[in-house]
Amino acid sequence: MLDEIIAEDEYLYRGVVDACWDEKEGRPSSAAFKDSKGISVDRDGGRDKENCVKRLLSVKDFHAVCRLTARDARSCDTFVKYLPVDGNEYHSEIHDSENQVEIKSKAKSRRLNNKAEVVFCKDDI
C-alpha cells in the first residue's frame, strides 16, 4: 500500500497520444493537460523511470510519456491526489484545488505542460 500523501519529489507520469503531440515543438500541447475530470497520472510509487513508462505503454500506444514532480504540479496551484483504481495502484489525479476537480484555468494547464519533461517519445526510437 502506497502512502496516501504523494511526496514532493515523487514523479507523476502521463501518456500523450499522437493527436495532442506538437510535432513542431517536439512537446505535448497543453491540450494534453485538459480534462473534464482531474488529470490522470501515475505516481512513481518508488518505481524507476523505465518501469513507469513501460506500464503506461502497456495500456495504450502513446506517442510520448512525460513526467513532472508533485512539487512542480503543486507549484502550478493545483492539488495532487492519490486515487488508486482497480488494476492500477499508482493512479493519481491532478485537480484544480482541494475542492474542485476540473482544471478550468487554461493558464494552469499551460504551466503544467511547461513543467512536464518528456521521458519517452516514439520519434526518438
Partner: peptide, 8 residues
C-alpha cells in the same frame, strides 16, 4: 495549430 482536449 489544432489539438483535441480530453474534455471534448
Amino acid at each position: 495549430k489544432m489539438f483535441p482536449t480530453g474534455r471534448g
